[in-house]
């Protein structure tokens, strides 16, 4: 089992944190994982992204040219990463910030109005976890418990009060993906 994932959006959307939630959760549940951010000039303007690997055996390359699953939270990320998706791969795309479309018919695109849904929940910053729920519903890269564990690492101390809301967002994402 190897999940090669890229999460992308613009700076401030919590993209890198989203990846860390998954990796922290994977470690707590005895999976192998790697998380690597784009840094430097590449990460300025346009897209901020991280590559997350989840496996049950030693992970070779922490980077990939052809991810099996992606989350794209804005337009530049959509145009950059959808063409790279492996045939049969899954993409969760934020319909609120992606206006274009793709003509690829060998991948699955799950459209989620992540920003609108997050605002309805009362916190725009939960948009990422809605997307995360949608992707995990379709791909199943970790158990739901791992996401909760991961949130515990990222939101510690005073921020721990944000965990229930983010779990709610994650569950909402799962529901949205299930309904299609």
């Amino acid at each position: 089992m190897l999940h090669e994932m890229i999460f992308a959006g613009f700076g401030g959307q919590g993209i890198l944190t989203m990846g860390q939630i998954v990796s922290y959760g994977a470690v707590d549940n005895n999976l192998e994982t790697s998380w690597i951010p784009s840094y430097g000039p590449e990460s300025r303007g346009g897209t901020s992204n991280c590559t997350v690997m989840i496996s049950d055996e030693r992970i070779a390359s922490p980077m990939t040219a052809a991810p099996s699953a992606i989350i794209v939270m804005n337009e530049p990320s959509f145009t950059k990463f959808v063409p790279k998706l492996k045939p049969g791969g899954v993409c969760v795309a934020n319909r609120d910030l992606v206006t274009s479309d793709t003509d690829r018919d060998d991948v699955e695109i799950i459209w989620v109005e992540a920003n609108l849904e997050a605002k309805a929940l009362g916190n725009l910053m939960t948009a990422g976890n809605i997307a995360l729920g949608a992707l995990n519903e379709r791909v199943g890269f970790v158990a739901d418990k791992a996401i909760e564990d991961g949130l515990g690492h990222v939101f510690s101390g005073k921020k721990a009060k944000l965990i229930p809301l983010n779990m709610q967002a994650y569950q909402l994402g799962k529901d949205l993906a299930r309904k299609g």
Binding site: E32, T33, W35, I36, Y39, G40, P62
Partner: peptide, 10 residues
């Protein structure tokens, strides 16, 4: 290098 330095792993 920065790949190993910036990367997170268990």
């Amino acid at each position: 290098d920065g790949v190993i330095g910036q990367m997170m792993e268990p």
